[in-house]
C-alpha cells in the first residue's frame, strides 16, 4: 500500500509541476526582456503609462510591435510597458495582465490568446479605472474601448487566398495549418478564406484545417502529414508566423517545391530563404512596427479620455489609418504582400 501512496504522490507532484510550468513561466516572465515594467511602479509620472501584453514575448512579431510602441511613446509622450508570457498560453497571459492591473497602469492593451478568458480581466481593469483596449487580436464581447486592427479581416483572408490562388493557377485542393485553436483573429481569417475561396475560386477547395500551436516543428510535421493524406494537394497556408515557414520547410524537405505552393502570415526575415527558393510564394503581413505605434497611440488617447475623431497625430506618419465608430476599431490599413523582392526591406 505504501508503494501505491508514493506512486500517487509522484504522479501528483508531476502533474503539479506540469501545470505549474504553464503558469510559472508566465509569472517568471521578467526573466525575458520585459524589464521595463519595473520602472512603472506607481505610474504616477506626468505622462500616461500604456501597458501592452502580447500573446507571447520573444518572437520577432511582437518584438517588432514593441519597437514601434517605444518609438511612438518617445514621439507622443507616454510610458511604454511591454510584458507577455513566454508561451502563447491564456493562463500565463492572465497572470501578466493581473500584475499590470495591480500596478495601476493608465491604459492596458492586450493581444489575447483566448478572448473569453481575458474578458473578465478587462472588466476588472476597467472597474479599477484603467482604460482598456485590444490590439492584434480582438476580444469582441469584452469591455474594451477600442480594437487596434492590423488590417481588416476581410483584407487578410482575401490577400492570403489571392496570393495562393495566383500560385496554384486558381484551382486545386489546399489545406491550412493554423496555430492556437482559440485565437480569434486566426479563426476569423480562416472563415474569410473559406467563404472567399468558395465564392471567387469555385474550382478550389479547402480540404482540412489543422492546429499546430506556436510550434514550428509540429507545423512542419502536420504539413508533411497533410501532403501524404492528400496526394493531390497543391497548396498549403501557414496561418501564423511559426507555421508559415513551417509549411514551406515541409514542401522543401519533401522535394515538392513547384508542385505544392505555400503562402502564409510570416515575418519577412524568417520567410526570406523560402521566398528565395520558391517553397513559399508569398507572405501576407502588415507593417508590424506601425501596428505597435498605433497601439501606443490608442492607449495614450484613451488614457487621456480622448476619442479617435481626430487622427491627425498618426495620419502624418501612417496615412491609411482609419477609425470605425460602429465597431470601435482603429484600422492600420490594407495588408502588405511580401515576396522575395521586398522581404529584405524589413529588419524583423
Amino acid at each position: 500500500m505504501k508503494r501505491h501512496v508514493s506512486t500517487a504522490a509522484v504522479l501528483a507532484a508531476l502533474a503539479l509541476g506540469v501545470s505549474a510550468c504553464g503558469t510559472g513561466s508566465g509569472g517568471s516572465a521578467p526573466a525575458g526582456d520585459g524589464g521595463a515594467s519595473g520602472s512603472s511602479g506607481g505610474g504616477g509620472g506626468d505622462v500616461p503609462s500604456v501597458a501592452f501584453v502580447p500573446k507571447l514575448q520573444g518572437v520577432p512579431y511582437f518584438e517588432a510591435m514593441n519597437t514601434g510602441g517605444q518609438a511612438a511613446c518617445e514621439e507622443i509622450g507616454c510610458e511604454w510597458l511591454y510584458q507577455g508570457p513566454v508561451e502563447a498560453d491564456a493562463a500565463a497571459q492572465s497572470d501578466v495582465v493581473r500584475s499590470f492591473v495591480q500596478q495601476g497602469v493608465d491604459a492596458l492593451v492586450v493581444a489575447p490568446n483566448d478572448p473569453d478568458s481575458i474578458s473578465p480581466l478587462l472588466q476588472q481593469a476597467a472597474d479599477a479605472g484603467i482604460a482598456v483596449a485590444t490590439s492584434d487580436t480582438d476580444a469582441p464581447d469584452s469591455v474594451r474601448q477600442v480594437f487596434v486592427e492590423q488590417a481588416s479581416t476581410q483584407g487578410i483572408g482575401e490577400g492570403l487566398t489571392d496570393a495562393l490562388m495566383e500560385a496554384m493557377g486558381g484551382s486545386g485542393k489546399y489545406a491550412i495549418v493554423s496555430c492556437g485553436e482559440t485565437a480569434q483573429n486566426l479563426n476569423s481569417w480562416i472563415e474569410v478564406q473559406r467563404s472567399y475561396t468558395a465564392e471567387a475560386y469555385p474550382d478550389a477547395e479547402i480540404v482540412d484545417v489543422v492546429y499546430a500551436g506556436e510550434d514550428q516543428a509540429r507545423a512542419t510535421q502536420l504539413a508533411t502529414d497533410l501532403m501524404n493524406a492528400n496526394p493531390d494537394l497543391t497548396g498549403l497556408v501557414g496561418e501564423c508566423t511559426s507555421s508559415a515557414p513551417g509549411v514551406a520547410q515541409a514542401v522543401r524537405d519533401a522535394g515538392r517545391t513547384g508542385e505544392v505552393f505555400t503562402v502564409g502570415l510570416g515575418t519577412p526575415q524568417a520567410m526570406l530563404p523560402y521566398l528565395e527558393d520558391g517553397s513559399s510564394s508569398a507572405a501576407i503581413l502588415w507593417d508590424v512596427e506601425a501596428l505597435g505605434y498605433l497601439t501606443a497611440y490608442a492607449g495614450t488617447q484613451l488614457a487621456a479620455g480622448e476619442g479617435f475623431d481626430d487622427l491627425s497625430a498618426v495620419t502624418d506618419t501612417y496615412p491609411d489609418v482609419t477609425y470605425d465608430d460602429a465597431t470601435k476599431t482603429l484600422l492600420l490599413g490594407p495588408p502588405l504582400r511580401i515576396t522575395a523582392d521586398n522581404a529584405g526591406d524589413y529588419d524583423y
Binding site: 508531476l14 506540469v18 510550468c21 507571447l56 520573444g58 518572437v59 513566454v86 508561451e87 502563447a88 506556436e214 510550434d215 514550428q216 516543428a217 512542419t220 510535421q221 511559426s242 515557414p245 513551417g246 514551406a248 520547410q249 526575415q269 524568417a270 530563404p273 523560402y274
Partner: peptide
C-alpha cells in the same frame, strides 16, 4: 530539433518537450 525546424529558431523551442519524453 534544429534540423527538423525551419531556418529560423524561435525562443519557444523545447517548450513542453519534457512531457513528451516522460
Amino acid at each position: 530539433v534544429i534540423a527538423q525546424g525551419t531556418s529560423t529558431l524561435a525562443p519557444n523551442v523545447g517548450l513542453g518537450l519534457e512531457l513528451s519524453a516522460i
